[in-house]
């Protein structure tokens, strides 16, 4: 009886430490993080923003702007996937890189739905009080718009999802698209996993 108990309990005792993984910190976007098949993960967002920034830097499109640094308006970026996440996770990372390194300045007081309505009001009042000779309102060079889409396929239990991040930069003086970039991510599997 005792021997049988040992035979039954020993493998359980040995496997128990393997089965439970204690919470720990990992680097954001690290390959050690959780990888899901049906959702956009943090690794995907970081890869997308990095790919966009690399493309912007290598083409040098922001250096062609009339304003130095280039003035940028953040347009609508639509998340057309079944995965719920804030698109700002990508755009704010891009803004951080562009604004803090002096490659671009984001205009937050532009249009009918400005990001910072209070700042726009102050700016308009200042302009009104100083008259027509005052400095013009922000005169942006480019607007950034985009879309995130998905293509889902499956074969038996195996699912495959391709998430595509697309961004477009439009020259606001000519109305022409001057830069566009697509970053794809394809994930395949039948269950979520902890990365390597």
């Amino acid at each position: 009886m005792r021997t049988r108990s040992i035979i039954v309990l020993l493998p359980i005792a040995l496997l128990a430490p393997i089965a439970c993984e204690r919470a720990r910190y990992v680097d954001t976007g690290s390959p050690e993080g959780v990888i899901t098949v049906g959702n956009v993960d943090m690794q995907d967002i970081l890869k997308a923003s990095s790919g966009m920034l690399e493309s912007l830097a290598e083409t040098g499109v922001l250096k062609t702007a009339k304003n130095k640094p280039a003035q940028l308006v953040m347009g609508e970026i639509v998340n057309d996937t079944s995965s719920r996440f804030d698109v700002g996770e990508m755009t704010y990372r891009m803004r951080e890189q562009l604004v803090n390194t002096g490659q671009a300045a984001v205009v937050t007081t532009f249009g009918n739905t400005p990001e910072d309505k209070q700042a726009q009001e102050v700016l308009r009042r200042e302009k009104f009080l100083k008259g027509e000779t005052s400095e013009p309102l922000p005169d942006p060079d480019f607007s950034l718009t985009g879309k995130i889409t998905q293509v889902k396929r499956s074969a038996g239990d195996t699912k495959q999802v391709t998430y595509t991040f697309r961004l477009t930069l439009t020259n606001l003086r000519s109305g022409l698209e001057v830069w566009t970039k697509t970053v794809d991510m394809t994930k395949l599997g039948n269950k979520n996993a902890v990365g390597f």
Binding site: G29, S30, P31, Q43, L46, S50, L53, R93, M94, Q97
Partner: peptide, 9 residues
């Protein structure tokens, strides 16, 4: 330090 230095697979 930059947002371009990320782990890619």
């Amino acid at each position: 330090a930059s947002q371009l230095s990320v782990w890619k697979v």
